[in-house]
Design a protein around this nucleic acid. Structure first.
Lengths: 137, 137
DNA sequence: CACAATCCCGACTGATTCAATCGGGATTCT
DNA sequence: AGAATCCCGATTGAATCAGTCGGGATTGTG
């Protein structure tokens, strides 16, 4: 079970933007210096923008910048924007229709519990924490 | 971000086997009554067997049974068997080669931290807990 | 022994997702 | 006007996923 490159690249880009937060909008090219394919990165930044995590300035001298302060943006926000909501069981999403399995859906409760806990964890680590290289234990 | 059906079906099957732990080996057909495609399920049980989580008895009257007691098998074991080890950054696996990114690999530490924490969580919930429908908070 | 029930296993297929590219359009600074 | 930039839908090739197929091996039962 691995994260896709979307999540990984997305976090790289966001950390970069957090580091340059005081320096005005960063053009795509600059971010892509991290070693990411730039046209692909452009797509990803589009998703981050739609999720309200980055702002863009168009035209010459334009670029991308964080839409909020680094302590208001967490890894969870980024993964959510890049890979869609974390949800271990689609069961947890179907409002309708009882679970058809004979275990009385014990599993459903577990997936919900685990999904919750993992989300708590992901939302608890912010870009600010990463910049400070906080010891996280 | 979702779990694949492998993980989900795998857990269903294991919960089923835990419930029937006292009743001898359960044939594939019986497990597939949960609503899982049986030939596919057969593959999955193969993986669970290779991971040492189930034993099989071949021949007539044969079937599958848990290889250990339900409190020795966790959701983490099952997901690991079904989907491979949880690893948010492939970076965490490459022993060689420094991370090429200019953020000094702050991200690597975060992925490692998160991977650890999520694993702790997954390995902390056992089949036994699920049978008892423990309140998990 | 023969047979049925069962597990074992590699090959295959169709659908979906992933990673990335392409081509062109719109905006804004100088 | 022109360059720098973001915007966006379409497309592609590869990988993975979900599931099927066909046949083989093992073992209890009559």
């Amino acid at each position: 079970m691995k994260l896709s490159t979307r999540g990984k690249y997305g976090l790289y880009a966001m950390v970069y933007l957090a580091q340059k937060a005081e320096e005005g909008p960063q053009p795509l090219r600059a971010i892509a210096q991290l070693g990411l394919p730039d046209q692909y990165l452009e797509q990803l930044l589009g998703s981050l923008r739609k999720a309200g995590l980055v702002n863009t300035v168009r035209g010459s001298q334009g670029g991308y910048q964080l839409a909020k302060s680094p302590d208001a943006i967490s890894v969870g926000h980024i993964i959510d924007a890049m890979e869609g909501p974390l949800n271990l069981s689609e069961c947890a999403m179907e409002g309708e229709g009882a679970c058809p399995h004979s275990d009385g859906c014990k599993t459903k409760r577990v997936w919900e519990y685990l999904t919750d806990r993992i989300n708590q964890l992901l939302y608890s680590v912010t870009l600010q924490d990463m910049l400070e290289s906080k010891e996280m234990d």
